[in-house]
Amino acid sequence: MLKPEIAVLDIQGQYRIHTELYRCDTAQNTIILVNGSMATTASFGQTLKNLHPHLNVVLYDQPYAGKSKPHNPHQKLLTREIEAQVLLELIEHFDANYLMSFSWGGTAALTALACAPRRIEKAVISSFSPLINSAMRDYLERGRHCLAACNRTQVGNLVNDTLGKHLPPLFKRFNFRHVSNLDEHEYAQMHFHINQVLSCEQQCFLSAAQGIEIPVLFINGEWDEYTAASDAQHFAQPIANSQFISLENTGHFLDMEHKSASHISKNALLSFLQPTQLSPHAVSL
């Protein structure tokens, strides 16, 4: 089992952030991973295995979530701009030169990348789209309703029946237990986040990405109807140096769904981030 270097960092005197650094003496580059909504560092377990020891890997919990939660007062809700500022500080602290986000972590990641952090050389945005299509709008509207009511069972079932529909049964059980046992302030934060997303039309997300000059890889699951691969292609215009991959036989949760998905996801990531370390035959997409 990998052992991280754990630190709780003070960000601008306002937030205390739980961080985990998985260091490898032979790795030359460091990647920081940005959680999706209602997720914690534990959600990146499979991604961590795929990236380490090729890279030093940094995981962290948002101030309101996971192991950061006990260190913060939860007196105000966080905008994506604040989450982006936290991310920018962590990039500097860990000298991270790669960034990867999952799902709604893409909002904070793209907002941070638009600030052109000097250290970041490449970024991966997974399971994210600038379009709120009909399937995603239905999910968000239903989510807003059961989060406002703090109906834990409904929230847990909603995530598993929609975004998590292709997860194996064991992961669905873990997912339900985690999502249905969050604190009320976490539900309030997610409710606030959904309201932000629903009030932000397509152009809002595309404008946020304007001017990003580094190479950005967008990865979406072939079966993901919520953040569809075809919708992600809209980022091609604002991000000139963008690439797009659709992972076959996978839904929203990509490398968590089955072994083959994990394998092709790993190859896609490493061939983009560390192409010189892979043989020409190592990539199978």
Rank of each mutant, 00 (worst) to 15 (best):
E248G: 15
A84N: 03
S129M: 00
M1Y: 15
A149E: 12
G143E: 00
T30P: 00
E89Y: 15
M38G: 04
V58C: 02
C150H: 15
S265K: 10
C150T: 15
K165Y: 09
P117L: 06
A261T: 04
A27G: 04
L254Y: 04
L90A: 01
R118E: 11
C146Q: 11
E92D: 11
D25W: 10
H185I: 12
I120P: 07
A268I: 01
S126K: 00
I32T: 10
Q203S: 14
W223N: 13
L198R: 09
Q85A: 05
Q62A: 13
I219C: 06
E20V: 08
S126L: 01
T19R: 00
F244H: 08
I194P: 08
E213G: 10
I125V: 07
K266N: 09
I32E: 04
N241S: 05
I32C: 06
T47F: 01
C200R: 15
Q233E: 12
H74W: 03
N133E: 04
G105L: 02
K67Y: 09
K122L: 08
R144W: 05
L55R: 05
A42V: 15
F253A: 03
H71E: 00
A236M: 09
K3F: 11
H234T: 15
M38I: 15
G211A: 02
S260D: 14
I264V: 09
E225V: 14
P117W: 00
S126W: 06
G143T: 09
D183S: 13
L158V: 08
N72L: 04
E92C: 11
I264L: 08
S242M: 03
A229I: 03
L78T: 01
F176E: 08
P63G: 07
S199T: 13
E81M: 14
Q274H: 08
N97M: 02
L2G: 11
K3H: 11
L33K: 00
I214C: 02
L147K: 01
A116V: 13
H166W: 09
Q46G: 15
L99S: 01
